[in-house]
Write a protein that binds this DNA or RNA. Structure first.
Length: 509
RNA sequence: GCGGGUGUAGCUCAGUGGUAGAGCAUCAGCUUCCCAAGCUGAGGGCCGUGGGUUCGAUCCCCAUCACCCGCUCCA
């Protein structure tokens, strides 16, 4: 996408292209869709898999070299989406996800219902006054003086949640002077729940995971006991997560079903600063290496007050943010590198009664609960960022737009095109296609004139087109047509695979 | 969740109280030695969904769903 000087890309056009070419469809499209869910089409799934595989390679197959020059140890995991519900109570998600909220119809303000108290006149006559539970005595006095009657002695104090909602019409909300402006409390539980077993009841209620990370903590002991890893080490996992977002928005950016790529890096508490810095740099390099370079990618540290419950202590969270068209000139979160302290392992140790600490032979058999540095990326957000970054309007070419994908993520690496549908061109093209498809995802496109076919490949971001023409019959050469420049050159047909490897390696620099 | 907007062919949109059009795309055939070119033809829509008013609704009214924008919310 264009940088900050040229914010002319419209999200609508990107969404339209995604549907038209088979990257992303609205889920349940033929039934009118369903809010917050999306399907990945033939090209979208290729793109998503490419990003997923590159992440897995960086994390598990070929983890980076650590600060001391040794390759790091990271192992993979694929845990279940549904776990024992106790896991989510221990992790803080059940409590943290179920805040009842009330809205004030007058001021449009929203309050945590369990944070409001209500002053009720002892004689049952007159308005009830709602206040924040932290309100100081002077504040209460002031409010009674202003719109109430008498003094504090004339009132009893109840919590809002203990009251019958029928009585809400008597209540004056904290920031208004009128009665009856508070709505009924609404549960904002962001965890999807379901039931395990054929009949639904409170007894068998379970949750769809809102993050993949907990599956890693739950298996910490299993992995340590079975895989000979030693501190420091990482456990990586890619998978679906579910959040019942209040407002799914911005295409696939905030959806209710999404995919995460998370790695929990376990280390000694004294080393967290080193590893937090290390992983932030590594993750930044990763996104840059697949094309999200330049001013569209930034680092942002979380403010204290926005930190999640597990990161209140420690080093906090540093985000890698991308300038999406809908956030420009601002940025949206792509990945967070958090210091989760020992919050999760401690919580699960306490709740489960299991020992989740580590006996470290390298530290004189010191026994400790490891701290965790967590690079947690949104796979589906990454896909969106790649599409947005690649989207390049170009009025000088027939398609009017092309996707400038980095070759490593492009869903199709090349298209093989016979210049005409004549008998001599097609067999040669088919032969080349059959050879190339062993090594690369490639397309063979025979129909229609050559311009239309180039245009189609531009729109799906295919880096190379190889065209077979009359000269091919004579001298076994083909035309290479480059997506970004539309320039052409001729190479020997037998060298096409080698040529692609070379060119793609060059672009990865 | 609140306020505003939109919903007609794959896409971009016309249109009318009397059972629907254009351009582009798609597909087929011909043509074509390199950038959505040309010619011919084809497929494709219960006019988002459900009610109501009416002899009759794609059009008017209500509801609902989805999407967009702004708030709000957001581990």
């Amino acid at each position: 996408m264009p940088d900050e000087n040229n914010e002319t890309v419209d999200m609508k056009d990107i969404v339209a292209l995604c549907k038209r070419r088979g990257f992303v469809f609205p889920a349940s499209d033929i039934y009118g869709g369903i809010n917050g869910f999306w399907d990945y089409g033939p090209l979208g799934v290729e793109l998503k898999n490419n990003l997923r595989d590159l992440w897995w390679k960086q994390m598990v197959t070929t983890p980076p070299i650590g600060p001391d020059g040794e390759p790091l140890q990271i192992v993979g995991l694929d845990s279940s989406i549904i776990q024992n519900p106790k896991a989510w109570e221990a992790s803080g998600h059940v409590g943290g996800f179920s805040d009842p909220m009330v809205d004030c119809k007058e001021t449009k303000k929203r309050y945590r219902a369990d944070h409001l108290i209500v002053l009720i006149p002892n004689d049952g006559d007159g308005a009830w006054l709602a206040l924040h539970e932290d309100a100081e005595a002077t504040e209460i006095d002031k409010r009674i003086k202003k719109i109430g009657k008498g003094s504090k002695e004339n009132y009893k104090i109840e919590t809002l949640v203990s009251l019958d909602t029928k009585d809400y019409e008597k209540i004056i909300a904290p920031d208004t002077k009128e009665k009856g402006t508070l709505t009924e409390p609404k549960e904002f539980n962001l965890m999807f729940d379901t039931h395990v077993g054929a009949t639904a009841s409170e007894d068998n209620k379970a949750y769809l995971r809102p993050e993949t990370a907990q599956g890693i903590f739950l298996n910490f002991k299993n992995v340590v006991d079975s895989s000979r890893v030693r501190m420091p080490f990482g456990i990586a996992q890619i998978g679906k997560a579910f959040r019942n977002e209040v407002t799914p928005r911005n295409f696939i950016f905030r959806s209710r079903e999404f995919e995460q790529m998370e790695m929990e890096w376990f280390c000694h508490p004294d080393e967290v600063k080193k590893w937090h810095d290390f992983w932030f740099e590594e993750r930044m390099k990763f996104w840059e290496s697949i094309g999200l370079a330049g001013s569209n990618l930034i680092k942002r540290d979380h403010d204290k007050d926005e930190l999640s419950h597990y990161a209140k202590e420690g080093l906090g969270t540093a985000d890698i943010e991308y300038r999406f068209p809908f956030t420009a000139p601002g940025f949206g979160e792509l990945e967070g590198v958090a210091h989760r302290c020992d919050f999760d392992l401690k919580a699960h140790a306490e709740a489960s009664g299991q020992k989740l600490d580590y006996l470290d032979p390298a530290r004189d058999n010191e026994r400790y609960v490891p701290h965790v540095i967590e690079p947690a990326a949104g796979l589906t957000r990454g896909v969106l960022a790649l599409i947005c970054e690649a989207y390049t309007p170009d009025p000088n070419r027939p398609s009017g737009v092309y996707l400038n994908f980095h070759p490593s993520v492009a869903p199709k690496k090349a298209a093989i095109l016979p210049l005409t549908a004549k008998e001599e061109h097609v067999p040669l093209a088919t032969k080349l296609y059959m050879e190339l498809r062993e090594d690369f995802p490639v397309d063979l496109d025979i129909k229609q004139n050559i311009g239309k076919r180039y245009a189609r490949q531009d729109e799906i971001g295919t880096p190379f087109c190889f065209t077979i023409d009359n000269d091919t019959i004579e001298d076994q050469t083909v035309t290479v047509r480059h997506r970004n420049t539309m320039k052409q050159e001729r190479i020997v047909m037998d060298n096409v695979a080698e040529y692609m490897r070379k060119e793609m390696a060059l672009m990865e620099k």
